[in-house]
């Protein structure tokens, strides 16, 4: 797709264009849903931690599962939100070269390089997590905690975080060439 882009985009058939746009919309909506789930998880962490503190201090009745579940919810919120972070261009990147060089073609080349490298790294991470997910699923491994949950639940969210972020980067590579010259390479939309 990248090679095609650099040599002039191959003419896409109308239906193909339509199909890509639909997939893109579904993907975006999924990432926004993830953001809402991440917000819910964070609110839940705050609520259960507060409730547990009050229950322990005022009622002398600690809620033992709260620390373990705060951890699970934290991991969940980090990775279920990650695709939205990527989509909204909220990752921090160095902008040293982009601020030194100003030639548009050079900036675009830098951007393409950054997006390609990011994509390759995220795909590799997705693959590494996927293998671990399969082995945890096969062995039935639980978390080493007082209130264990199957490890593959958490690894599935981690996998989703990497894989969906990778897809966002791929879409930036393929469909946002005009945006690929911004100082912060992953800025796709305005910061929220």
């Amino acid at each position: 797709m990248v090679a095609g882009r650099q040599g002039g985009p191959p003419p896409l058939l109308r239906e193909e264009k339509h199909m890509f746009r639909t997939i893109g919309r579904v993907h975006d909506r999924l990432s926004e849903t993830g953001l809402w789930l991440g917000m819910g998880a964070l609110a839940a962490i705050a609520a259960i931690s507060f409730a547990a503190t009050m229950s322990r201090y005022l009622l002398g009745a600690p809620i033992a599962w709260v620390p373990d579940w705060s951890g699970y919810l934290l991991a969940f919120s980090i990775f279920v939100t990650a695709p939205a972070v990527t989509r909204h261009g909220q990752h921090v990147a160095m902008d040293i070269l982009a601020s030194v060089f100003t030639a548009p073609w050079l900036l675009r080349l830098l951007s393409l390089g950054a997006l390609l490298a990011t994509f390759a790294i995220l795909v590799t991470m997705s693959w590494i997590v996927w293998r671990s997910l399969l082995s945890a699923l096969g062995a039935g491994t639980m978390t080493a905690a007082g209130y264990p949950v199957p490890r593959w639940w958490l690894l599935a969210v981690v996998f989703y975080g990497f894989a969906s972020s990778a897809l966002h980067v791929l879409r930036m590579l393929a469909f946002c060439p005009q945006k690929a010259g911004l100082p912060q390479p992953l800025v796709e939309t305005e910061r929220v």
């Binding site: 990752h91 990147a93 950054a114 790294i121 390479p185």
Partner: peptide, 8 residues
Amino acid sequence: LLGVPVFA
């Protein structure tokens, strides 16, 4: 230097 996000 390329500008890859820090975590990546």
